[in-house]
Design a protein around this nucleic acid. Structure first.
Lengths: 211, 211
DNA sequence: GTCTATATAGCGATAGAC
DNA sequence: GTCTATCGCTATATAGAC
């Protein structure tokens, strides 16, 4: 948004390559664990170019975080709307979150590592945009409860639990693999995961069967 | 277990102080984010003493991890036994895990950070001891299902979900606080969390009401 | 055993040639 | 705009006095 001007297609290619490489490298080890030299190698560029485009390691990291947070919000939030029956809405939300965790596990891990260390850079997002989204989605849940479509619950906590369960298949993927004794998670494993999470959420919230 | 001999009470005091300080400092930032000088300051000892007792930063980190893993296993695993009714057993297990997350959030975060970066040091534990424990607990779940005390589920995935939900209140505590708009989580917040997780697990698994 | 003072390496960042 | 060579700092680790 500031630093060197935004024009030029070579610039676009380079910054895109750097951001993709940075997401890969930050995904293992977080901010402190990543080396600028690793990111440069991953992007196939000299290290100096990273500083030319992004100035400092922290500014590059912030750029990566920003991309992730944007995707986080777009991903699934429009499933939770009052017109939809809760069974369909919640199941769709869970499936979208699980699909996101599988599609971009690195993004999920970077987000998790940032929150783990106290979210120094994400705090404004958590207290602002995310809080408002949760309040809006919570109102929908309360609407469903009031209409007898599901149990009365603590809506925010239900979302914390959904996020925890879906993200665990990205963030703790190696633990899941190790415990199941797999080299990597099969499609069947992910189907079992989806079935389990969906059942816990729908039956756990007493959602009346979809029609 | 190796390096300097294990006798002497001054040694016991120093190593205990260092391990406690290390757990605090590793809890924010993980292995790479921690500075030996921070740990020394936190323990009130000169930095050189850390190296005298533990040799390297990695060996100190391993010692901290070992303590955490031991506690992890002791914490709650004896709740899941076939004699107990599943409602009581699963509710007790969830409560014990949540209490553990509240009592030692730093330990939970260190474990999470280690798994996040691919669990290079924990892999033997995950594939060995933890896998065996899950297999044993899964057999109990299947026993309950076979006796009509609860639905037929994917037992391992149920445990992944329980761990995810309970640990999120330690590992992602700042996110929970931010979204709820709190300075810190109140006793009421934690009671709501416990109620939500317990409901999702018990109703989600179709556990027949306790008698 | 305990500490101060220092060696050594690796990292982020930059200067300056092309 | 792009790269090579290098600076300066900081962190782990150790040598050696007490």
């Amino acid at each position: 948004m500031d630093s060197p001007p935004e024009t030029g297609t070579a610039r676009r290619d380079s910054t895109a390559a750097i951001l993709a490489a940075a997401e890969t490298v930050f995904a293992r080890g977080g901010f402190e664990g990543a080396r600028m030299s690793e990111i440069a190698a991953e992007a196939g560029l000299p290290k100096a170019n990273l500083h030319y485009y992004f100035g400092t390691k922290e500014r590059l990291y912030r750029a990566v975080l920003e991309r992730i947070v944007t995707a986080w919000l777009d991903a699934a939030s429009d499933w939770i709307v009052p017109e939809r029956p809760p069974a369909e809405a919640l199941a769709g939300y869970v499936r979208a979150k699980l699909a996101d965790a599988q599609a971009r596990p690195g993004a999920s891990r970077i987000f998790a590592a940032e929150v783990l260390r106290g979210a120094p850079l994400l705090m404004p997002f958590l207290q602002g945009e995310l809080r408002r989204r949760v309040q809006a989605m919570s109102a929908v849940i309360e609407h469903w409860s009031a209409h007898g479509l599901m149990d009365t619950v603590h809506p925010a906590h239900v979302f914390f639990c959904i996020w925890a369960m879906t993200q665990t298949y990205a963030d703790f993927g190696v633990q899941v693999q190790a415990v199941l004794g797999r080299d990597r998670l099969s499609a069947q494993d992910m189907a079992d995961a989806a079935a389990t999470v969906t059942a816990l959420v729908l039956k756990g919230c007493g959602v009346r069967a979809a029609m």
